[in-house]
Simulated assay, not measured.
Amino acid sequence: MRNSPRWSNGSVNCRLEWQPSRLLQALLIVLGVLAAVSVLASEMPRLFAWPIAATALAYGAWRAHREGKSPRPAFWFPCNDRPPTVDGQPMFDVRLHWRGPLAFLRWRARAGGRWYHAAWWPDTLPAAQRRELRLAAGDGDAGRDRRDRAP
């Protein structure tokens, strides 16, 4: 239809602040507890099982604490031709992958440099911001699959 209005410009500005996921922290602690229980439930001699179980429990708690204390960068995805930025620094080779409600972002701080990554869990990225991120990042796979369209 020639005269139909254009409802979306295809991209929008998006500003996101990454924050640690409490769900992930809880899961890390649960994994540490389960590892300790599984070692104690095995037929390993108790002399070795208790130190290994304590280490597994401590490691799970340490990982959860470390996840909670990680830096909190701010991401900006502009709608114009400028590159997206993290804490004001441009990102190169930006790749956004989706796994259901999980969003995984990979980028380089400079061309040919080291890869950095961030992951948003459902408790840190509400549905409205997920949609905003999809639009801002320009999901190139949208509509390419034949099953996405009506017959």
Rank of each mutant, 00 (worst) to 15 (best):
L34R: 09
G32A: 12
A103G: 06
L135C: 10
S21I: 06
P71N: 04
S8V: 09
A111Y: 01
A119L: 12
Q129P: 02
G88S: 07
A36W: 11
A61C: 14
L133M: 12
W121E: 14
A74Y: 03
P90K: 04
P90A: 04
V30F: 06
H65S: 11
R46M: 13
F75Q: 02
G88W: 01
L16R: 07
V30G: 08
N80P: 03
F48N: 09
W7C: 13
V12E: 15
L24N: 09
R134I: 00
E132L: 11
L57V: 02
I29M: 14
P90L: 02
A49N: 05
Q129Y: 02
L96N: 05
Q19M: 13
R114S: 01
P84A: 15
F75E: 03
L135E: 14
L102V: 06
H65F: 13
V33L: 15
S11V: 09
P90E: 01
S8N: 14
T85M: 15
L27F: 04
M91A: 11
P51H: 07
L133N: 01
M44P: 06
G10L: 11
L31T: 06
R106Q: 03
E132P: 00
V94T: 11
V33A: 11
G140P: 01
G10R: 10
L31M: 13
A49W: 07
L125Q: 04
R134Q: 00
L105K: 03
N9M: 12
Q89T: 04
R63D: 12
A74G: 05
A127G: 03
P83F: 05
E43C: 08
F92R: 04
R6N: 13
G32Y: 05
S11N: 13
G68L: 14
R99C: 11
Q25E: 15
G112P: 02
A142V: 04
R15H: 09
L40Y: 06
V39Y: 09
L102A: 03
P122M: 10
R99F: 14
L105N: 08
A61M: 12
Y116D: 05
T55D: 10
R66N: 06
V94M: 08
H97R: 07
R130K: 03
L125S: 04
G138W: 12
Q89F: 06
R15E: 15
L27M: 14
M44S: 10
W50G: 02
L47I: 11
Q25S: 15
L23M: 14
A118L: 13
M91S: 03
R6Y: 10
N13C: 10
N80T: 04
P45A: 14
E17T: 14
A36L: 10
Q25H: 09
D81K: 04
R108Y: 01
Y116F: 12
P51G: 11
A142D: 06
